[in-house]
Each structure stands twice: as C-alpha cells, then as structure tokens.
C-alpha cells in the first residue's frame, strides 16, 4: 500500500505542472494591447501613468520580464501561497480566499456527506428491491434528479419553502460556528439544490453496481453457507458495489465546485463561486486565475483520496 501511495503521489507532479501552466498561460492568452490592462482593466488610460508607476504596477503583478521567467516566478509565488492581487479590490487574492472559503467549504462538505449518505442508502434499497415499486420510484426520482439543473431546483425550493410555506430563509449567510442553528437553517435550501444531481447520480451508480453483484456466484455461495443477509450485504456486496461509486467522488467534488457558482448566486452566499462569478463579470484576471488553480488543486487531491479508498477496497489495484 505504501508503494502504491508513493507512486500515486509522484504521478501528481506532472499533472500539477500542467495545471499550473494552463492557468498561467491562460492569462497570457487574454487579448490586450498592453499588459498593464491586466492590472488596470481593458481599455485603461496608460498615458496617465509615469514610467515609474507603470513599471511598479507591472512588477507588482508579476507581469515584467520574459514569459519563461514570469512562469518560474509564478510557480515560486504559488509555492509560497501568494496568488496575486485583485485588480478591482486591490486585496491579495489569498485573503479573499480566506474570507470566502468557509462558506464554500460548509456548503460543499454538507452537500457531499448528504449526497453520499442519500445516494448510497437509496441506491442500496433500490438495488436490493430491484424490479419492485420501490425500485421504480427510486429510479424515477434519480432520472429526474440527474436531468434537473441545480439552479432551477434552488428556485423551486425558494418558491415552495420560502414564499409559500415561509419555513426557511432564501438568502444570506450565517456562520454555523457563530450561530449553529441559524447557520444550518440558511444552508438547508442551498444544500438541497446543490445536492440533487449528486445524490441522483450516486443512487444510479450504487443501484446498478448492486444489481450486478447480486448475480455473482460468491453471493450465492455466501447465502448457501447460511450467512445472515445483513452480513452478506455489508461484507460481500456493498464493498464491491461501491467501487464504481469511488470513481465518481472526484467528479462529485468538481460538480460541487461548479454548482457552487450558481447556487451561491441564487442564495446570496459570499463564497468562492460567487467570487469567481464576480471576477468573470469584472474581468478580474488574477482572481479567475487563482480560482482556476485552486479548484484544480482541490480536484486533484480529491481524486488522490478516491484512488486511495479504491485501493483500500480493492486489493487488485494496489498490486497492479
């Protein structure tokens, strides 16, 4: 297992290099007449700056010197946790992340846990009772769930739970660490909207994985040995049926991060997704670059964890 782990972590190095290169050179592709526009915005009045100011601004943004040198410096800054400065707020991007990360982390982690719990739970029930009415209902819910955009689920939930029933707030952010009850109350609708797609896709995957396993000889053998059904499900079926679900986990994190952009907009949550959207609308290049880089990093780490879980569940992987 240790060798597998080391090999897997080492294989991340080229991917991280490519990711950093893509986000760095992406910024280079922005069509501008003068690189100072990346700091001051498109169509900036460069003539009003003195030469010293011009040089200082370029230097501060890391835009001076040849491209290879700038890339090396960019990597150096990344290694020190320096993500540049927003050209709109003039704030260091790292600080902006610090303010907004808790919002996105709360939203995404609660959604992730509920997705896995609901998706696997309902998927197991649908799989065990496949062909029955329970299965039919679960499958129908899943088919609708994977086709329904999260932002529309968010709108539906606002109409029903805020406007009609008046049970839950439709916008705003209260940190659950400050006021747990109120904080969670503000997160219920966003989590629901963000989670529908993920739960439905995990449900589908678990169900089909389980149905495949139900037919296997070793399950029949386990039954003929007289093992209790709960033991068979836990030890022989779930472990195998959940393997394909593991590969979905990295994808789930990516989908959650993407979904956060829309959900944070609808529910007025000041998270990373909202920051990415504002930065895109304002063409705040450094912030967009930082969000791209950090979210790619999150996905790469999520995939690493998924692979480790996969290897733990399936010994064939780590010895191959």
């Amino acid at each position: 297992m240790h060798r597998f782990l080391i090999r897997r972590v080492l294989s991340l190095i080229p991917v991280l290099f490519f990711v950093s290169a893509l986000s760095f050179f992406g910024l280079e592709l922005v069509p501008v007449d003068d690189p100072i526009e990346l700091v001051l915005g498109p169509g900036a009045e460069v003539g009003q700056l003195t030469d010293e100011q011009y040089e200082a601004l370029l230097k501060q943004a890391g835009l001076d010197g040849p491209i290879t040198e700038r890339y090396v410096r960019y990597l150096g800054r990344l290694a020190q946790g320096d993500l540049g400065r927003s050209r709109i707020t003039r704030q260091p991007v790292t600080e902006m992340f610090k303010d907004r990360l808790p919002v996105t982390l709360w939203l995404n982690s609660i959604t992730f846990v509920t997705n896995v719990a609901l998706g696997v739970g309902l998927g197991v029930i649908a799989g065990l009772y496949h062909g029955t009415k329970i299965d039919l209902i679960a499958t129908l819910v899943a088919v609708i769930g994977v086709a329904t955009p999260g932002f529309w689920v968010g709108i539906l939930s606002i109409i029903v739970f805020t406007l009609w029933l008046g049970w839950l707030p439709s916008s705003g952010w209260v940190d659950p660490l400050d006021d747990f009850g109120n904080g969670i109350k503000h997160l219920i609708l966003p989590v629901f909207a963000l989670g529908v797609f993920g739960s439905a896709s995990i449900l589908r995957q678990t169900r089909s994985g389980l149905i495949e396993v139900l037919r296997q000889d070793y399950v029949t053998t386990a039954r003929s040995k007289g093992l209790r059904e709960s033991v068979i499900i836990r030890r022989h079926m779930l472990k195998v049926a959940l393997l394909p679900v593991m590969t979905l986990l990295g994808f789930q994190i990516a989908a959650l991060l993407s979904g956060s952009v829309l959900i944070e907009r609808i529910f007025g949550l000041p998270g990373i997704g909202r920051m990415a959207l504002d930065a895109t609308q304002n063409r705040d290049f450094q912030v967009v670059q930082a969000v791209v880089m950090m979210s790619a990093l999150a996905i790469v780490v999520a995939n690493l964890i998924a692979d480790m879980l996969y290897a733990w569940l399936d010994p064939r992987i780590r010895y191959s």
């Binding site: 893509l22 991060l257 990415a276 791209v292």
Partner: peptide
C-alpha cells in the same frame, strides 16, 4: 490536466 478543472469554473 484539462479534465482536472471543474467544468463551469473552466468555462468562466
């Protein structure tokens, strides 16, 4: 590497 980026953020 391209796949490592979350789709909507990449599109943004």
């Amino acid at each position: 590497a391209w796949i490592a980026f979350p789709n909507l953020i990449l599109i943004l």
